Amino acid sequence: MSLSDSFNQSRDWRNGQIGQKVREALQKRGFQASYVMTTQEAREEVLKLTPAGSSVGISGSVTIRELGLVEELKKRGHIVYDHWAPGLTKEENMAVRRNQLTADVFLTGCNAITLDGRLLNTDFTGNRVAAMIFGPRRTIMVAGINKVVPNVEAGLRRIKDVATPLNSHRRQWGKACAVAGHCIECNLPDKSCRVTTIIEMCPDGNQDFYVVLIGEELGY
């Protein structure tokens, strides 16, 4: 076995240990959860969980796009509500976001997942976190192993110092964190992190909630 193979094997072992621990914690909190090693397995899992003919809302998630799910769902004939679709007017964009709230299936990423199974997310508009809590008939959350954090405090710091600056930079927003590369605890009119949620247990109004954790790094 080469040195590189040995490193990869050890990394996969560690990711698996963490992934299974988080999966069990999520299940204890009422979520339906699974752990897969690769993005290909995750993609297959999500497609299997998406019923034929269902309408699908796509959140603003880099992870979902990295899995190539938008294109595949369209090929399968699903109605897809994707507010990242090019050419939308501001009014059309908001209409798509509202349709996501009542879609049959809502696909989303996650900003941070604690070892004991809490889900942390921050939004600018609020449509993504709203749809996680209530509205869609089924929610499927997909997250890379890089989203796992020890506790809520670490999750909030990850959101401020990793997820929000990277998303602001990706969107070429001149936000303070996009310039600094980390949160400066601003309270400016263009502040990105406006709505933060901590889902302690599977929401009573959205109990068909799946979490697919992947043993690879994906998204921000």
Rank of each mutant, 00 (worst) to 15 (best):
Q100Y: 03
M201H: 15
D208T: 12
I79L: 08
G16A: 06
V142W: 11
T139C: 06
E24S: 10
F7D: 14
A52E: 15
V179D: 04
T139D: 04
V56G: 11
K160Y: 00
K90V: 00
S59P: 13
N121G: 00
T38S: 05
A42M: 00
C177R: 10
T125I: 13
Q9K: 08
G16W: 09
S59N: 07
I198G: 03
V56I: 11
A52Y: 11
T196I: 07
S54T: 11
M132R: 12
G53Y: 04
G215F: 00
E24K: 15
K75T: 06
E45F: 02
I18F: 09
K160L: 07
L73T: 08
V212T: 15
L101S: 04
G155L: 01
K191L: 04
G53T: 11
L26E: 13
V195L: 11
I58C: 10
Q27H: 07
C193L: 07
A95R: 15
L119G: 07
W84F: 03
L73V: 13
V152Y: 06
R138C: 02
R137H: 05
V96W: 03
S168V: 10
G19T: 10
D104I: 08
A85V: 10
A25V: 07
D204I: 15
I184A: 06
S168N: 11
K191V: 08
G30E: 02
T38Q: 09
K21Y: 01
T89V: 04
S4E: 14
S168F: 01
G219M: 03
L213A: 05
G68F: 07
E153R: 13
I140T: 12
D123H: 12
I198R: 15
I113W: 07
G87I: 09
S54F: 00
A52D: 10
L166G: 01
I159T: 02
A52M: 08
A178H: 01
F209V: 14
N8D: 08
E45T: 13
R194D: 03
G30S: 05
K21M: 06
G19A: 06
L88H: 06
D208C: 09
I18A: 11
R65E: 04
V46F: 03
D116E: 00
T139Y: 01
V195Q: 12
L166C: 04
E153H: 09
T50N: 05
K147S: 01
Y220A: 05
D161V: 02
I159C: 03
R43F: 04
